[in-house]
Each structure stands twice: as C-alpha cells, then as structure tokens.
Design a binder for these strands. Structure first.
Lengths: 198, 198
DNA sequence: GGTTTGACCGGATGCTACCTCCGTTTTACG
DNA sequence: CGTAAAACGGAGGTAGCATCCGGTCAAACC
C-alpha cells in the first residue's frame, strides 16, 4: 500500500492522460463515423500509437464499452426519474424510449450490442450492460403487467429486442422519423392490454 | 444482327461459365459467412481472378442482387399461392413471413437492403427488389384494411420495416426461435384490428 | 482451316485497416 | 539522482478491396 491507499505503485500520469484522450477522440469518431470507424485514425488523432490504443482497449468492443460508460450513467439518472412516475405503463414506455436513445448513440451500435446479448460470452465487455438493461426492462414490464396494463405474454427481453430493432432502423438512416414513430406506435399497441384506454 | 438474332457478336462461352461459377460460389460463401464474406476468396474458389469478378459484378451489392435473383423468383412463386387465399389477413401474415424468410437468406443481408431502400439511389441494384416488396406489402395491407382486419393507421412500409427488423434479429444469431416468435406475435397484435377475432 | 479482332482474363499493384511485437522512453520511488 | 518497472509507439506482417493493363482465347469472317 502506498500513500494514496492503492495497491502497489501509483498509476502513471501518462496512462490517465492517454486513456482520457483516447476516450474523448473515440467518442467523437464513433459519433461521426459510427462504431466501425478506423481505430488507427482514433489513435493518431489522440496522439498515441496503435499499440497504446490496443493496450488500453484490447478490442473494439472494449473501447466501445468504455465510451458508453458515460451514456450508461445518463441512463441510470433517467431511470431514477422514471421510477418516480406513478403510472407503470407510462414508466415502461419512457424506459423503452430511454433505451432506444442509448442504443442510438452511435450508428451501428445495435450490432455489437446484440452480439454481446448472446449469452455465454462473459469476456465481451458489452455483455454486462446488456444484461443489466434486459433485467431492468423485465422489472418495468412486470410492474405494468401487475397493473393490468401490459399483456401477460410479453417478456422484458421481447421489448429489449424491439427497442434494439428500432434503434437499428434509425441507425441505417434509411427511414424518416415519421415511419419510426408509426413503428413504435405499432409495437406499443402490440404489448399493451387491448382494453387499456390510457 | 447475326444468326442467333442477337445484336453484334455472340457472347463468349467462358463468360457464361465464369458468371455461373461465380454465382454458385458466391451463394455458398454468403450462406456460410454472411454478406460480408471475402470477395477475393469467392473469386479464388470460383477459379477466376479478382478482375473477372469485379468486371461481372462491379460492387458487392451487384453480386448480392444477382445471387438473390433465384430467391426472388421463389418469392414470386410463393406470392402466387398467397394470392389464392380467401382471407386477406391470413394472406398478409403469410406474405410477411415470406418476406422475412427472403431477408434471412444470408446473415447480414438486412443492412445492405435497408441501405438500398433509402430511395434516390437508383444505381443500387438492390433498390428495385426493395421497392417491389414495399409495393406488394402495401397491396396486402390495403386489402386487409378493406376487410376491416388491419388498423387504418398502418402502412405497408411499416410492416416492411418490421419484417426486415425481425430478419435482422435472426441474423445476429443472438436470439432463440421462441423469442422471435413472441416478437412476431407482438407485432401482429400491433397491426391487427383490436376486435379481430381470427 | 487460317487469320483477324476485340472482348475477356487474371495477376500484379497500391491502398487502407487490423493487430502484435519489441526496442526505447517515461515515470514513480527510494 | 539512479534505477527498474511500466508504458509508449512505430515498424511490420496479414488481409481485403478495387483497379489497371499486357496477354490470351474464342468467335467471326474469308
């Protein structure tokens, strides 16, 4: 133990500096060019060699997961607001929108996300966030079902899939916002109880 | 005009041979490795140089469209059967399944398909099949709406998007058939008229 | 059947991106 | 300030894409 209470040697300053620069640059490139952006370009613009990038983030997914960390925290914050709502059907709906926004953060994000959702890949750094989201969705679904607002046949995972799909469609950029709205409405009338008048 | 009634010179035998070999090999590779498979590998296995492949099919999409031609014909055949059905709601449902199967022919197919669906790209060889499918879907939707079996708010394009989405999910391989079934059912109760007892 | 012609072939080529390895540099600590 | 551990970063091997061009081969004409 050293003075800062950490095990072993104090972490080097350049490590943190490079990591922060990489994350900042990567986020910008993911935003502009999607998740398939060139990692070499990210490294160069962050002012480090490719080796440094790969040491910090061994795979594209690892970098992606680290960049998504910020968005995850936003999502958790939004979750707190949603939990305040009295209406469980409204809460579910807002939660689905929140997830959809999260999935739409970068174009092409749904693909690695679905690859990670396929379980038995504990080494994939995106698996944990995915599982968390599925579990949370299930919570909202069950609450709404208890209130008789959502069909009993629906599972949280189904609506997780629905949200990812909508995000995927948005990410392809082939569709106007109107069509996406209609698709969301179609899904909503699919999971809601038929006699729900809300 | 020559003896065979064609303009100019008779097409060379090796052209047809190479084209057929490329199509056959490409289909096998698309099946095994998805639409992102290496075109160089396809050319090598077909016994031609990369130049020959690119002369026959200038882009990956062109090759894909040519390989899909066979499947398109199957789809048209299936359409004939569907048109025999008396029940327009049943016809729509079967048509959606037929489209979904078509989209699921190769893993990763939905992405280039959606890219082509984005209009104003008349040079994309996948645009034509896409537009045809959307138009056909609209036909089935309108027939079912006329019979009061499908909500008025639904558009053919919406269900086209739904079918592509389901195919995309299947293609990621991250989901078991049961979940896909539930998602399909969810979508169905979303577009059907609420009081439809069928 | 021989010659001509031009369409077609296919490999060599330049490019971009991925990912790894290892000699060099930086950093923390005593 | 000296030292050793840790991190850096660029060189380099691999793979795939897409193009170009000299050589070839099949079809057409005599």
């Amino acid at each position: 133990m050293n003075a800062s209470g950490q095990r072993g040697r104090k972490p080097r300053a350049d490590v943190q500096r490079n990591r922060a620069a990489l994350l900042e640059t990567a986020q910008r490139h993911f935003l502009q060019h999607g998740v398939g952006t060139s990692l070499e370009a990210v490294a160069k613009e962050a002012g480090v060699g490719p080796g440094t990038l790969y040491r910090h983030f061994p795979t594209r997914e690892a970098l992606l997961a680290a960049v998504l960390q910020t968005r995850s925290e936003e999502l958790v914050a939004r979750q707190a607001d949603i939990d305040q709502l009295g209406d469980p059907a409204e809460a579910l709906e807002q939660w689905l929108r929140a997830m959809e926004d999260y999935f739409s953060a970068f174009s092409g994000l749904p693909d690695p996300l679905m690859a990670a959702a396929r379980a038995q890949e504990p080494d994939n750094p995106l698996t944990l966030p995915c599982d968390t989201l599925i579990t949370a969705t299930d919570k909202y679904v069950q609450a709404a079902q208890l209130a008789g607002r959502v069909r009993e046949s629906v599972k949280g995972y189904d609506l997780f899939l629905a949200a990812v799909s909508v995000a995927w469609i948005k990410g392809t950029g082939a569709t106007d916002e109107e069509s996406v709205d209609r698709l969301r409405a179609l899904l909503a009338s699919g999971y809601r109880e038929p006699d729900d008048q809300a």
